Amino acid sequence: MASYDWTWHTGPELDPGKLYALLSLRVAVFVVEQQCPYQELDGHDLHASTHHLRVLTKHHLAATLRLKVPEERDKPVSIGRVVIDPDHRGNGLGHDLLQAALMRIESLWPGRNAALSAQAHLQSFYDRHGFAPMGDVYLEDGIPHIAMQRNADQQEK
């Protein structure tokens, strides 16, 4: 099993190489692998209120996700752009990745809920981490999604 280096960066802390690597992985999976042309560059990656988790092996980026933190304290922290390189899937990295995000939210923004827009086929994955659906399945860029939220007081299942 690969050894991983887990690092968090706010948007302004991403140098061009780090930003390029995470954008490259996201495009490789979301646009190319999933055959879903959409505008990946959404203007949020470099904001100070955006936090990126980068999971690296010795040679490359294995996984990443992004947290967007609204200024309004009553709004949930958004977990998004959760992506794992195909060579690193199937070994529990996704669960570890999501757990790291939840720990970060709990540590830096205690009492804040977490929200995400999950691809519908991954709903049971997020269910296991305490997320509940917040409505019906909808299409986003041609792929079925569902809004989900995890309340701050929700225990892991």
Rank of each mutant, 00 (worst) to 15 (best):
G17I: 11
G17R: 12
K18V: 00
K18H: 09
K18Y: 02
L19H: 14
L19F: 08
Y20D: 15
Y20W: 15
Y20M: 12
L22N: 08
S24L: 15
S24E: 14
L25K: 02
L25R: 07
R26Q: 07
R26H: 09
V27D: 01
V27N: 01
V27T: 13
V27Y: 04
A28L: 05
A28C: 05
V29L: 10
V29S: 05
F30K: 00
F30N: 02
E33Y: 01
Q34S: 07
Q34H: 05
Q34D: 02
Q34C: 03
Q34T: 00
Q35M: 12
Q35Y: 03
Q35E: 13
P37E: 04
Y38T: 07
Y38W: 12
Q39T: 14
E40N: 08
E40Q: 06
L41F: 12
L41S: 12
L41G: 06
G43K: 07
G43D: 06
L46R: 13
L46H: 11
A48Q: 06
S49D: 15
S49A: 14
S49M: 14
T50H: 03
T50D: 09
H51D: 05
H51N: 06
H51Y: 09
H52Y: 03
H52A: 07
L53E: 08
R54H: 15
R54Y: 12
R54T: 09
V55Q: 10
L56S: 14
L56T: 13
T57Q: 01
T57S: 00
T57I: 02
T57L: 07
K58T: 08
H59V: 06
L61D: 03
L61N: 01
A62T: 00
A63C: 06
A63I: 00
T64Y: 14
L65H: 04
L65A: 07
R66I: 06
R66D: 05
L67Y: 03
L67V: 03
K68S: 13
K68M: 15
V69N: 00
P70W: 02
E71S: 02
E71V: 08
E72L: 13
E72S: 14
R73E: 14
R73W: 10
D74C: 14
S78E: 11
I79Y: 07
G80V: 11
G80D: 14
G80M: 10
R81M: 05
R81N: 01
R81S: 00
R81E: 02
V82D: 13
V82Q: 08
V82I: 15
V82M: 11
V83F: 01
V83H: 01
D85P: 08
D85L: 05
D85F: 01
D85E: 06
D85T: 06
P86C: 09
D87S: 15
H88V: 00
R89P: 05
G90D: 07
G90H: 07
G90V: 07
G90K: 10
N91V: 10
G92C: 03
G92P: 04
G92M: 09
L93A: 03
G94Y: 07
H95I: 09
H95P: 04
D96K: 13
D96F: 07
L97G: 10
L97F: 10
Q99F: 08
A100F: 11
A101L: 08
A101M: 10
L102T: 02
L102I: 11
M103E: 11
R104S: 00
I105Y: 03
E106C: 08
E106L: 11
W109D: 05
P110C: 06
P110T: 04
G111Q: 03
R112G: 05
N113Y: 01
N113I: 00
N113R: 12
A114V: 07
A114H: 04
